[in-house]
Amino acid sequence: MAFLDFVPNLGRRVLLTIPNLGAAARFLLRSLVAVINRHFSIQQLLKQVYGFGVRSLLLMMVAAFFTGMVLGFQGYYALVRFGATSALGTLVALSLLRELGPVLTALLFAGRAGSALTAEISSMKATEQLNAMEMMAVNPFAWVVAPRLWAGIIVVPILCAIFDLVGILGGYLISVPVLGVDGGTFWAQMQSNVTFSGDILTGLFKALCFGLVVTWIAAWQGYAAQPTAEGVGNATTRSVVTASLAVLGLDFILTAFLFT
């Protein structure tokens, strides 16, 4: 029976999702446009860039370092069987620049900054702070949502660039001093196979899309949350889960479009 319920449940969920999606899209548009509103403040934007970016920097760097080292190890053991360890630099760099950098940055960002953003906006709603703003004739989209959304769009590509670089460094430190791959070959191979526009910039473009999507989902979940303590908790969980899935799904689509 439980399985038979699945079909109508799925139908209901889809039917509920479509108007929600419409509302979320309108929310995104209103917030993005609010950047020209009188109440949009650069100071608020900087504050959010600080909160999202500077405060996630250490996390990103540690994660990137380990990711790069693991890539170095695994790549080495895969390539050494074919005597192709000279391609290790290429492998590490391309994996990071095209996929792992943007995706891992976005996932970590969703967990670190996205969840905090949802909790912040939903508790602002629960404690009537958004209403209070509205009553003071300050547009909450311009003052609260827009700076956070734009901060996400700005911060994630920057974090991604740093992630890529630190990851490659981690890969280098494992490959060359530890596993004994020739350092010159490592860099030379990497340089001859990585293109600036095709690999580095497209990777960063991916990160930009992810930044937009993650902050959008996080802000929307916060804005649409039930204004209760339980609602805040639920929204935070949903924000991370939805944002992570959205990143992975979008990554597939972007990869199909950008790298073919």
């Binding site: 920097l57 620049l97 920057i158 740093i162 890529d164 670089l165 340089q191 600036f196 580095i200 960063l204």
Partner: peptide, 17 residues
């Protein structure tokens, strides 16, 4: 933070790319 990002991009462009 922003400078760090630009520096990372420069290094990526020159050293990796």
């Amino acid at each position: 933070f922003v400078l760090l990002g630009i520096a990372a991009l420069m290094v990526l462009a020159l050293r990796v790319g």
